[in-house]
Structure formats: structure tokens, C-alpha cells
């Protein structure tokens, strides 16, 4: 019956597969888009600004005359590097912290608990704004801020999973054998808490994309002249009243499809592992 559990069930979930197709499509655009688009996404064409969609420009042009289709395809890149990078950093740090607080406990556990409550008392966007104002917006800062905010949140999930494991016989056996604490945490316990970590990571990735997109829209995320979707919407939304819907709609639809895709993947994994 091993097929019915774990990976087999994940792969068979139609929700998961639908999400995966969407995510892989955008990953493909992010990796190879630069060579697939017919027009340079960064080239201005000031004689041809705000042109409606046509055979020459499938999604029209923006206020600088740049080709919107090319920019939407290439625009998958920035967000799909910043958000996963931040999530990965937070997962590594959060896992280590969660193992420590769950297994060793003590004052570190108490401090982390308080810290999480404070972090949760502030909306993600507002905390990020504060730090980004302090340090100045840049891609590295955005990654660092999101990673730092996510670390205790992931640590909390890992900690809960570790607490459930540490009372089990195999941990007691390892302790009796005289294994070091580091060994017990990373060799004995870690493999057994990987499923909840995987779920937490995919869920966090969704939030990271949401946050990066919102920060870029607010002007504190990915900076010009990037083709990032949130940035494109921020640069052009003032003009939709004038009827130039193509400058923002395609970037908006792309953002929506990506976050929904990641979320379907996360939900598929979660449903299969529970």
C-alpha cells in the first residue's frame, strides 16, 4: 500500500498536477524566456508608446514603447529568483532553529516564542517596509528581510514536529547510546520531520511571492528597469483610466496564475501528506 501514501498520492492529485503545470510554465519562461521572445523586452521605442495589442506587439507596448509580451514572459524571472531564494534561506535557518528549540529547549525556546508573537503582531508588508526604508531597497535586502521574517515562523512549525518526535523510543535509544545532541537532531530527528518542513516551505513560497510582488508594486521591492510584474503594474496602473488596459492586465494575470499555481502545489502536497 506504499503507493497510496506519500509521493504516489501527491503525484496523482489533480490539484497538485494543475498547479505544477502552471508553475513549470513560468519557470520555463524565467529560465529560457530571454531567448524565446521575438523583441528585446528592455528596448524603448519612444515613437511607438502605448500601442494597442497587434500582430507586431501581441500584448501592445507600455509607456516607454517596450513590448509588453516580451516583458511578461521575461518578468517571471525576478520574482522566481527572489521569492524561492528567500524561502530557501528561511527554511534552512528555520529548520536549524526549530530543531534547537524543540530538542534543546530552554531560554532559546522562550525567546523564540516571544519573538514570533511580536512578528505575528505586525503585518508582513509593514515590517518589510520598515526594514527596507532602514536599509534601502535592493534585491538582496528584499531576500534578507523576507528570509529573516519567515525563519521564526518556519522554526515554529519544525519545533512542533520535533516536540512530537523527541518523546519517541528511537530518540531515547540514541540518547542511551550516547550520541551527541547535534547527531540526534540532524541525523535521527531531521529525516522524520521532513514532510511537515516540505509543506511549510511550499506554503511559505506562496507567501513570499505574494510579499515580493506587493513590495515591488509599492516601490520597495524589485527595482527598475526590471520587467518584474509587480513593478510593471506599479509603473502603468495610473493609465488604465485612459483605456490602456494591456499595460497592466497581462502582468496581473501572470502574477495571479503564478501564486495560484504555487498554492495548488502546496495544497496538493499538504492533502497527500496528511
Amino acid at each position: 500500500m506504499s503507493e497510496r501514501s506519500g509521493l504516489g498520492r501527491v503525484v496523482r492529485s489533480s490539484v497538485f498536477l494543475a498547479g505544477l503545470v502552471i508553475v513549470l510554465f513560468w519557470v520555463g519562461c524565467a529560465l529560457f524566456g530571454r531567448w524565446l521572445v521575438p523583441i528585446d523586452p528592455y528596448r524603448d521605442d519612444l515613437l511607438n508608446t502605448l500601442a494597442a495589442p497587434s500582430a507586431a506587439h501581441w500584448f501592445g507596448t507600455d509607456q516607454l514603447g517596450r513590448d509588453v509580451f516580451a516583458r511578461v514572459v521575461v518578468g517571471a524571472g525576478p520574482i522566481l529568483s527572489v521569492a524561492p531564494a528567500a524561502t530557501l534561506l528561511a527554511t534552512v535557518a528555520g529548520t536549524a532553529l526549530g530543531l534547537l528549540t524543540g530538542y534543546v529547549g530552554g531560554w532559546l525556546d522562550t525567546v523564540l516564542g516571544r519573538l514570533i508573537e511580536v512578528l505575528l503582531a505586525l503585518p508582513l508588508i509593514v515590517v518589510s517596509l520598515l526594514v527596507l526604508v532602514a536599509l534601502g531597497p535592493s534585491t538582496i535586502t528584499v531576500i534578507a528581510v523576507i528570509a529573516i521574517i519567515f525563519t521564526p515562523l518556519i522554526a515554529r512549525t519544525v519545533r512542533a514536529a520535533v516536540l512530537a518526535e523527541r518523546g519517541l523510543d528511537y530518540v531515547a535509544a540514541a540518547e542511551l547510546r550516547g550520541e551527541s545532541a547535534a547527531n540526534i537532531m540532524f541525523v535521527e530527528i531531521l529525516p522524520n520531520v521532513l514532510p511537515p518542513i516540505l509543506v511549510e516551505t511550499t506554503v511559505r513560497l506562496g507567501y513570499a511571492i505574494f510579499t515580493v510582488a506587493s513590495l515591488s508594486f509599492l516601490g520597495f521591492g524589485i527595482q527598475p528597469p526590471s520587467a518584474d510584474w509587480g513593478l510593471a503594474i506599479s509603473e502603468n496602473y495610473g493609465m488604465i483610466v485612459g483605456g490602456y488596459w494591456w499595460t497592466v492586465s497581462f502582468a496581473a494575470a501572470a502574477t495571479a496564475s503564478l501564486v495560484v499555481g504555487v498554492n495548488l502545489v502546496a495544497d496538493g502536497i499538504q492533502a497527500a501528506l496528511e
Binding site: G206, F210, S249, A252, V259, N263, L264
Partner: peptide, 18 residues
């Protein structure tokens, strides 16, 4: 519900404005 929850506000706002 699950899908709508993760759409950033500025994205749904653009759709609503249009």
C-alpha cells in the same frame, strides 16, 4: 477560496478597476 486568498490585492484590484 484557496486560490483567491493568495492573489495579491493589487492584482485583484486591477481586475476590479478594469
Amino acid at each position: 477560496g484557496l486560490s483567491l486568498t493568495v492573489v495579491p490585492e493589487f492584482v485583484s484590484a486591477i481586475a476590479l478597476i478594469l
